[in-house]
Nucleic acid binder design. Sequence first.
DNA 1: CGCAGAAATGCAATCAATGCAAATATGCGC
DNA 2: GCGCATATTTGCATTGATTGCATTTCTGCG
Lengths: 220, 220
Amino acid sequence: MDSAPGLRERKKQRTRDHIVAAAFRLFAERGYAETTLADIAAAADIAPRTFFAYFPSKEALLFCDAERDLRSLQEALDARPEGATAIARTREWIAGRLEHWASDPDAEVRKRLVREVEALAAQERYVMGRFEAVLRRGVARDLGEQPEALRPTLVAAAAIAALGSLEEIHGAEHTDGIEPATAEQQLAVLDEALVFLEGGIAALQGHEAPEGLAAATDGR
Amino acid sequence: MDSAPGLRERKKQRTRDHIVAAAFRLFAERGYAETTLADIAAAADIAPRTFFAYFPSKEALLFCDAERDLRSLQEALDARPEGATAIARTREWIAGRLEHWASDPDAEVRKRLVREVEALAAQERYVMGRFEAVLRRGVARDLGEQPEALRPTLVAAAAIAALGSLEEIHGAEHTDGIEPATAEQQLAVLDEALVFLEGGIAALQGHEAPEGLAAATDGR
DNA sequence: CGCAGAAATGCAATCAATGCAAATATGCGC
DNA sequence: GCGCATATTTGCATTGATTGCATTTCTGCG
């Protein structure tokens, strides 16, 4: 896709990767709170001040991959053809990402940190909320409703919850541990979730919003 | 309910209220970031260090009411009789709280701050996640599934999303502004959401989780 | 080689959060 | 009413994340 972004860009990207790698290594070793920005900077061989040229905060570093995914999903939904629904498109997008997610070496550390540090759990929820908003807009377009309307809201919330739960799924247990779930297994769960969504939408067909009621369109 | 918690307790509660009142007033006037803990402490007539005897952080202050609600919902679900479902019980709990929420003088300021400050949006999402977890456990009990199973997850996520959207609902518009939604209107929307949930659950009836799959029961 | 713009730093200042220990205040039993 | 044991409130010092600003160090391109 993007091959020659210039030497300057590539170097910057390399530095960025170094920072992330160094940070995750330190987080894994000592924990999040116990790793200072100075530590990360030293390990990545940059000045502490420079860290902020790459990430807006220590927390943001943990979710930079998610940010990229978010943009990716947004593009996938924006570019979808007339026929495809946002939900269907999202399913395909997820299917195409599962393998990549499964091979993310930092996933486990991130999961552990999110479990242990409240601020990170909050940050993760925030990011999930942004995915939700993206999907909500897409669903709203499909249904011809405002993004703040009930159905888009419910569908997006449940769909993103399902997405989040995919990480928690695991396969068969062995005496020597737990097998990670295969992409097929994860997709199966995702499809179950879609059945739920369709059932919910269908159930709402014919239900009218009470008169005088409108979702907030509230600009800014 | 709780009338005589002792003079000491009552004094502490009064101080707590002072802090919250002072903080919200300052936040409304100058904004969140522009209000330091020192400012709040001064306005509430306490030493800066004392603030942390009441709240774990500056952010927590914004959502102390939600924390109370969370405990309240938890109790409502725990105490529910055999017959009542978690969802039904939650609906009643919400119905009983709407009036109180509508009269919260800080609600508007909080909403504005959450919109403007990313960290607060994250914190709010985190709290919503805790509501979700509480409801999820309740729904799981009803369905005889693990809290991490798909249906409890989807139902709880959608239900809490619906709850969150109630704040965004508003009534008829006038030339001179927008009328806030009545409790009846909010309940009507909430009931629509419940129709969605039931439809979704019904759609999943008969669907079996793929063999070899299990939701993470993951202790820790 | 030398310049204009982009990056990386260095430095100082804020401000939230926390540990610790001293200073106060409160409730209670005598 | 007095004094102790306990609960609170404070003061003080420190750590660490962030940020603004000015300076120095590259990089790509004539």
